[in-house]
Design a protein around this nucleic acid. Structure first.
Length: 387
DNA sequence: ATGTAC
């Protein structure tokens, strides 16, 4: 009996779930085809918010017979959660000033009395305390928003939502923990597959749990600071993770689980976001988009933004909301004009029958990092050096 | 997106 030849490796299929008129960078599509050519890949589903990432595209669900940690990236467990919040009045100017410093981690000893700890039930995953309760940088944020248009009243009602209700939207991940997990893999295996998927998955699952806990801690810190009670999230979906599904590894990078779940698809701080009922099938990698998707690189947004906008324009958005962001560069990088139109992304999902919009959320205050206030930078530095 | 090095 002759040796059976190994089956010819047919390249994985690549499907882009966007209309031809949607702006998708060719570099991002090229990245999808590079991923499709990896050993063991069977399918790449690109979402309408697809844009180029570091090595792998962002906004894609990638299926393979082997587990590639770099396809999930370093922010394992990153996701978006929505928490109902009850406030008597919601004046953006007043509330923006009350946000706590979310760059400062919760310290078990120093902050022992902080009531936000109550959301920790059981152990902290991986025992990782560094950065706990911090929002991070990049596209992460905590936003106070109000429900705008309700498009599916019955579904919204089941979630306890009506037009005008307030919610906290938290987009954050596993901070240093996920980064450490990916680095431990890449230092030895680079972009290669995990030789022991079970070992990677155990650490990965810790980071996914840590990310979700972090979003709850962030929401609780903000709720208390605004004079409200913390609540359970009505939506909490992680868009950077890998799962074993139907005998294959389904990697999601900037793609939210879309199999019969409710997902908050982030617009920008100056445009609505959409709460959708997702119903994506296998062709779409059981996934939907996670946001509007970047239209410009950070470098382009900074260069073009400086020519186009003043800092004051960026701190007060077209919908009348405020942005708390003491980091000038980040203010430009995350300008609404650096992102695609969220309506186009949602339309593409609807036309491909991947999701049904339930309600929009309209930003009131989007928090990124503490405001510097009017104190000149050098004075702050000098003061920090004092005992 | 990240912690850290420049």
């Amino acid at each position: 009996m002759s040796q059976q030849p190994s089956p010819p490796s047919t390249p994985a299929t690549v499907t882009v779930f966007a209309s031809p008129t949607s702006w998708i960078e060719s570099d991002a599509v090229a990245q999808c085809h590079q991923v499709a050519a990896l050993d063991g890949m069977t399918h790449v589903a690109a979402m309408p918010d697809l844009h180029p990432g570091k090595g792998a595209p962002i906004g894609a669900a990638m299926t393979s017979t082997v587990l590639y940690p770099f396809l999930v990236g370093s922010d394992i467990g990153c996701g978006i959660a929505v928490f109902p919040v009850k406030l008597k009045r919601a004046v953006p100017e007043k509330l923006a000033a009350r946000f706590p410093d979310l760059d400062r981690a919760l310290d078990p000893e120093q902050d022992a009395d902080d009531p936000a700890w109550d959301v920790v039930k059981g152990d902290i995953p991986a025992g990782h305390l560094e950065g706990l309760g911090t929002v991070g940088r990049g596209n992460h944020f905590v936003e106070l928003a109000r429900i705008g248009t309700v498009l599916e009243p019955d579904h919204a009602s089941r979630l306890g939502l009506s037009a005008g209700d307030l919610v906290l939207i938290v987009h954050s991940g596993s901070r240093g923990l996920g980064e450490r997990i990916l680095r431990a893999h890449t230092e030895v295996h680079g972009a290669g597959p995990a030789p022991d998927p079970g070992a990677y998955l155990a650490m990965h699952d810790d980071a996914v749990r840590w990310g979700s806990l972090n979003r709850r801690l962030l929401a609780a810190r903000v709720a208390y600071a605004l004079g409200a009670e913390p609540t359970e999230p009505i939506v909490d979906q992680c868009h950077n993770l890998v799962e074993l599904r139907d005998g294959a590894y389904l990697h999601r990078k900037g793609a939210a689980p879309g199999d019969g779940r409710d997902v908050l698809i982030a617009g920008t701080r100056g445009t609505p976001s959409y709460l959708v009922a997702a119903h994506a099938g296998p062709d779409a990698g059981h996934s939907v988009a996670h946001g509007a998707g970047r239209k410009m690189s950070r470098a382009d947004a900074l260069r073009r933004g400086r020519a186009k906008h003043t800092v004051e324009e960026l701190r007060r958005t077209p919908v009348g909301s405020l942005v708390v962001c003491g980091d000038r560069q980040l203010l430009f990088e995350e300008a609404p004009t650096a992102y695609k139109r969220i309506e186009q992304v949602i339309d593409d999902l609807v036309h491909h029958d991947l999701a049904t919009p339930v309600a929009t959320t309209i930003p009131l205050v989007t928090y990124k990092t503490p405001d510097l206030g009017s104190t000149p930078r050098r004075d702050r530095r000098r003061r920090r050096g004092r005992p």
